Computed example of a mutant assay.
Amino acid sequence: MTAPHYFFALPIPNEIKNYLYEWTQHIKEKAAFKRWVHREDYHITLFFLGNVEKIMLENSLQEMNNLIEPLSSFSLSLTVPGSFGQSPSPRIFYAGTERPEQLVKLQRKTADCMEMFGFPSEKRKYRPHITIARKWIGEEPYPGADAFLPLEQRQWQAKEVYLYKTHLDKSPKYEAIHKIKLQK
């Protein structure tokens, strides 16, 4: 059994999860991806920790509580589908989300906090998204996200940050083990 990994993320409300799941059911015929993300695993990652010793996790959680609790909740909405990786065979297919200033600030504060504890930060620009599927396996090259149904610009309120633990041998594979509420 592999050691669990941890990450901080924004949870997705059930009505958005259900909409995205229904949307995937309409595009699966044209979208030849190896693995589709379980609807309960939809989230917007803020910072990936990886495998963490218990004491380091507890210390970083305390700091995250102090950092996040004074921040205000904010509005998010879906934008357009997209992908990461080489265009003939991308590794990630996602539902895009807005990138409001509050989200960018939250992600930056989370990354700065985790860097203080020795976690390496992502070097690429932060691109918020909800992973929908992984690894293109189609016989034809990936047609691009424009080939699929557009996403409705559904909106929701980001009200909390979760610390998730991975269970690679289960489905759904992410377990919310700690919740930090944002101010109303």
Rank of each mutant, 00 (worst) to 15 (best):
L78N: 06
V80N: 15
P81D: 04
Q86K: 15
Q86S: 15
S87N: 13
S87L: 09
S89Y: 08
I92W: 06
I92C: 14
F93H: 03
F93P: 02
Y94Q: 01
A95R: 01
G96V: 05
G96W: 07
T97A: 05
E98Q: 12
R99N: 08
R99S: 11
R99E: 08
P100T: 08
E101D: 13
Q102A: 12
Q102M: 12
L103R: 02
V104W: 01
V104D: 02
V104G: 01
V104K: 10
K105T: 13
K105D: 12
L106V: 08
Q107N: 09
R108F: 05
R108Y: 07
T110Y: 01
T110P: 00
T110M: 09
C113S: 11
C113L: 15
M114H: 10
E115G: 03
M116Y: 07
M116W: 10
M116H: 09
M116D: 12
M116E: 11
F117R: 10
G118Q: 10
G118M: 06
P120A: 06
E122M: 11
K123Y: 06
R124P: 00
R124T: 12
R124L: 04
K125C: 10
Y126A: 02
Y126K: 06
R127L: 12
T131Y: 04
T131A: 14
I132K: 02
A133D: 00
A133R: 03
A133Y: 02
R134T: 07
I137M: 12
G138D: 05
E139Y: 08
E139M: 11
E140M: 14
E140C: 07
P141R: 08
P143M: 02
G144M: 08
G144F: 03
D146K: 13
A147I: 10
